[in-house]
Design a binder for these strands. Structure first.
Lengths: 161, 161
DNA sequence: GGTAGTGAGTTTCTTCAAGAAACCCTTTGT
DNA sequence: ACAAAGGGTTTCTTGAAGAAACTCACTACC
């Protein structure tokens, strides 16, 4: 069986997990949200095995969560973009982010902040701007480094270790 | 390695997925949200292998997402409850539910509805009551069967097939 | 008093997915 | 001509998931 499946479960949570609940899927999607669009960018940022990344990208394209667009020919090379279905996963990522910020090493501060573009207010896990109170859509948000964001050298060191 | 881990990722999404991103974890938690508290209830509802269920429950208790309380001695038997940390996963479940309702067989209608206790209004993926407009907490919500909820006989048939 | 059933696991064995590393192919740069 | 970059594919090894059987301490039934 190629995919996770949860036989006998009639439940939108289970169905969602069949599509994006496999190992790495959501992190790949998060990477694409942050603007990484090419195979090697994603591979080196996550450290996922290349064959697994190929399998995940192929599946996510099939399921219409991602779309691949050629950016050159000879050889054909593609970039991966989120479809509307993929963009709509934003609430799930925000929910994980909120929970992780609260429970995974909160003493270190948040690794990243999600803010309202222009306004600059921080966005909570209901996707509401804490400054202006507006309920926001994906395109009104941007991700910026937070207090616990590691410096590039630290990332390189961790990668070598 | 017993757990998923995502080495080198300093990110609240990745950290959350290390705790609850393994196969079955979130569905086990969903089951407990719906009031299933005992090993065999969860096992037969999900069809997860028993050894895997043991491993997940043990881990979730260790990580303080679940708490086990004895309900009889000789032999000792436990029920599993959500801690506050576990209850705080509700936004993640609601986000998956919203996405699944929208994209996984929406023509069939929703398998379950999450409604505002007392008020009866449906709750959206921002956890806001669609009827009275109030932002809700977990304890103000309840899960009821929706139009696509299968009848008990159908569930039994599916289990036999 | 023997037998069956239940609840919650544990053990064993098999299968499938993930990880690591090497290889491939085409183009660009030197 | 040779190396490097980009985006994979192949192969092999390890680790996790699934299925089924076994355990143990009761309880309830005939």
């Amino acid at each position: 069986m190629l995919y996770h499946d949860y036989p006998g479960q009639v439940c939108s949570i289970a169905s969602s997990l069949e599509l994006v609940g496999e190992r790495w899927s959501l992190l790949i999607i998060r990477d694409i949200f942050r603007g990484r669009r090419r195979f090697d960018q994603i591979q080196s940022s996550l450290g996922v095995a290349r064959n697994v990344l190929t399998a995940r990208l192929t599946r996510l394209v099939e399921e219409d969560v991602l779309e691949k667009r050629p950016y050159q020919t000879n050889p054909e090379r593609y970039e991966y973009f989120l479809t509307q279905k993929g963009l709509d996963l934003w609430p799930i990522l925000m929910a994980y982010l909120g929970w992780g910020d609260k429970y995974c090493e909160p003493e270190k501060g948040k690794p990243r902040l999600i803010v309202h573009k222009g306004c600059g207010g921080e966005i909570d896990d209901r996707r509401i701007c804490q400054k202006c109170g507006k309920p926001l859509e994906v395109r009104e948000a941007e991700s910026i480094p937070g207090p616990a964001e590691p410096h590039p050298e630290e990332v390189l060191q961790a990668a070598r270790a």
